[in-house]
Write a protein that binds this DNA or RNA. Sequence first.
DNA 1: CAGTATCCTATGGGATACTG
DNA 2: CAGTATCCCATAGGATACTG
Lengths: 102, 102
Amino acid sequence: MQMIQGKWKIMIMFKLNEPGQHRFGELERHIQDVSHKTLTNQLRQLEDDGLIARHDFQTAEPHVEYELTDNGKSIMPVLDAICDWGDTHVDPKLIDRSLCDE
Amino acid sequence: MQMIQGKWKIMIMFKLNEPGQHRFGELERHIQDVSHKTLTNQLRQLEDDGLIARHDFQTAEPHVEYELTDNGKSIMPVLDAICDWGDTHVDPKLIDRSLCDE
DNA sequence: CAGTATCCTATGGGATACTG
DNA sequence: CAGTATCCCATAGGATACTG
């Protein structure tokens, strides 16, 4: 639980689970309401917990990409199950869908 | 996530999922390290979220029992999945098994 | 027995500004 | 662009004592 609790961690994981490269700025734009500091914090925690990997392209223009590790991929079905349960058992009025994709 | 995050909620749910009646004092004894106040808090939150039900036997000797609601039962497979993932993917050295049953 | 009240600390997360 | 630093606030949870 400690590894996945955090206001934005599930959203980060779902985003990273989508195909393609994922850069810091992209995540920040995609997850509208997260603060800059909190995003870096949660990314760092996920990284420390081995769920995601960070690739720093040591170029002049800072360029960092994140991706799921195998361990991170293995937890996605669990996160799916959490979201599915929420969709089917939680009163829609209580859910802030603005935090989600659709 | 908000409904299941809370230091002891998963343990409470698993305990209530076991057959038999479950009283406050029993939970308090079973979950060794939880503080009295925190246990009541988490029970109240689970109750407010509709995952458990509280039965107050209005007797001279206070007697309260808790049980899972249908909604609460429906989330147990998800909690199982979380625990199974933890058992198979998290370094055992990082897990405090003293918080668990066996 | 079950619950409440009070006090305390640690942590999470937001806002903002600054750095290379 | 990506990250750090600082300040601030709300909440979680523990310790303890009190109530019916």
